[in-house]
Amino acid sequence: MNPLDKPYAQLALAVLAVLVLPLFLKSGILATEILIFAMVVAACNLLLGYTGLLSFGQGIFFGIGTYAAGICLTRWQIPVPVVLASAAVLGAATATLVGWLSIRRQGVYFVMLTLAFSQLFYFVAYTFSGVTGGDNGLLGVPRPSVGGTALNAPWSYYTYVAVCFVAVFAILVMVTQSTFGRTLLAIRENEGRAAAIGFPTKLFKLEAFAISGAVTAFGGALHAMLIGVAPLSNIEYHTSELILIMTIIGGSSSLFGSVLGAGFYLLLADALSTVWPRWLLLLGLVLVTVALFLQRGLWGLVERGYDLVFRRERAPETPAEEH
């Protein structure tokens, strides 16, 4: 195993990312957005990379979290920690429902089911505009306050999100290292065998969905507070697609790869959109490149680079003797 894949190395890299972003970025908003998407993408990775489930439903959970924050904060002035916790619970519940229905089918049919749910939830949000604000979304979502002062300055809210991000990332590292996470890998590898040795595989998939949904909704709530709006676009199918693209660009074999994926996408989008209005076209080319030449994503590139620098002198492993 590459030393960079070890759990503490992953966590150290995440902390490093939090510290490095303010040094290179002028916009605190963009930096915060990167951290929010980094945790959401890592949660998607739990399904795609660890369980082998390509879910188009991540936008649902993100949107649910956004609306939970929007409704709780604009109508009832509930304390932010409570709002974040209830967003996570609501996300887990929704993900359990969507997952429970979707994992009954496998492969393409599973993907189509999550896609269908994604559309369904979008139209529900669009239709019940009394609750969600419809096309306009919910305006005036306040920032959290610490010690009586609202975190209205971009970098002070960045700090708040950074603490949340490191905590969530640490939890996800723990999940993937646990006996649960290792069973997920087994299910991804060979579901039939996992069932044959006694694991109720559906229950494991469902739990992976619940955890992923909780983190995604948590991120959605943070996002609503970042931009001050709970927009309809957060529950759109496009958000699901965005999260999946970031996951694939980052590489699904490591959690930190997801942080790279989110950062890469958002920074590239930020840079390209000022250069050329049709920047999405260039992004398409990036995706094609990743799909053709970088199937392990940016993280695969990092691993290769590490091997090149630190392991060049090492002899290839000698095959163990057979007897």
């Binding site: 723990m174 006996t179 649960f180 290792r182 087994a186 590898e189 694991f199 109720p200 494991f204």
Partner: peptide, 29 residues
Amino acid sequence: FPNLALRENLRLAAQGRTPWQALAPWRRA
């Protein structure tokens, strides 16, 4: 499980007798 180590394959098979334990995402393998 072709991409898991031989020992991990057997550990999973042994864990399969008590799968509910493995549902706890905080318990180390």
